[in-house]
Design a protein around this nucleic acid. Structure first.
Length: 277
DNA sequence: GGCCAGGTGTTAA
DNA sequence: TTAACACATGGC
């Protein structure tokens, strides 16, 4: 167990930011997270965050995962103070972090996310893990299922996935899994690609991966902080608040976190207050 | 009961 | 290059 004081860090906001579907609040200020084949319990009181794991696991795994060493206050300072909308959004979601999640998991997760709502996405992921993942137990005896590997998901048929409630995305899941298993698209190569645009283009070779899903994968797995996923919510914000376009130049290399502040602001309903002003 | 949800692929102009 | 449409399913 390790306890640290962290600024600009909120488990609640990270949990609700819609980038991770395997983290949940189990009780007040207590969260559980499954990442890779790891299970982690976390608690937070104010700026004090407790990671229920060893020092080594914290340093080697969870520090990079939660982007703990990055200076998010510095990101927020770069916001144009005359942009009242973005300033309010960042203030609202100032504890959000861009996680470093598993690439394969993000590909499958955001394939499922398309034309879908958050609660149903969670359900789909849960069913997928229980059906094709591995059952495990934490040190405290909490039961959990790992996210299915490409090999494990490779055993699924389109019919099975439809029966599991994946809808029309079942076909995308089967085809994309095949592309990864065959090596037509290489996860290792994607991890090594330094340029956001290259990775994005490569991801879009996968069935069911368009611009938006590719951007989510780039941001939430590959940590390309310039990725700016445009979904229905963001589209509306751009139409209302950024009629002359989002200031991409100003926020070059930071567009991803700005997108998350906006998305969270819209999702939590805090933006409604702003809009009626 | 329509409408919407972190869109994409296909087809036709 | 752009526009219209189909695609599953659950929650409101």
């Amino acid at each position: 167990m390790i306890t640290v004081e962290l600024d600009n860090f909120s488990l609640k906001q990270i949990c609700q930011s819609g980038q991770c579907f395997r983290m949940r609040e189990t009780e007040e200020n207590t969260y559980e997270l499954i990442a890779g084949d790891q299970y982690l319990k976390l608690t937070q009181e104010g700026t004090i965050v407790t990671f229920h794991c060893s020092d080594v696991e914290f340093l080697c795994y969870w520090v990079p995962y939660f982007d703990i060493d990055a200076d998010y206050a510095g990101y927020i300072e770069k916001i144009n103070p005359r942009d009242h909308y973005l300033s309010a959004a960042a203030e609202c979601g100032s504890g959000i972090r861009i996680l470093r999640q598993d690439l394969w998991e993000m590909i499958i997760t955001f394939l499922i996310s398309q034309q879908n709502n958050i609660s149903r996405i969670r359900g789909c992921i849960d069913r997928l893990c229980k059906r094709y993942g591995e059952q495990k137990y934490s040190e405290e005896g909490v039961e959990y299922w790992t996210f299915p590997t490409a090999e494990q998901l490779g055993t699924a048929t389109e019919e099975e996935l439809r029966a599991l409630g994946m809808g029309y995305r079942a076909k995308y899941l089967v085809e994309t899994t095949r592309s990864i298993l065959s090596g037509e698209v290489s996860l290792e190569k994607l991890y090594r690609m330094c340029y956001y645009r290259r990775a994005r283009q490569e991801l879009m070779k996968l069935s069911g991966v368009g611009e938006k899903v590719a951007d989510c994968i780039c941001l939430f797995a590959l940590h390309h902080m310039d990725a700016f996923p445009i979904d229905t919510h963001i589209r509306q914000v751009l139409d209302i608040h950024y009629k002359r376009g989002f200031p991409n130049r100003r926020y070059h290399g930071l567009r991803g976190i700005m997108q998350q502040y906006i998305f969270y602001y819209e999702l939590t309903g805090a933006a409604d207050i702003h809009r009626t002003k």
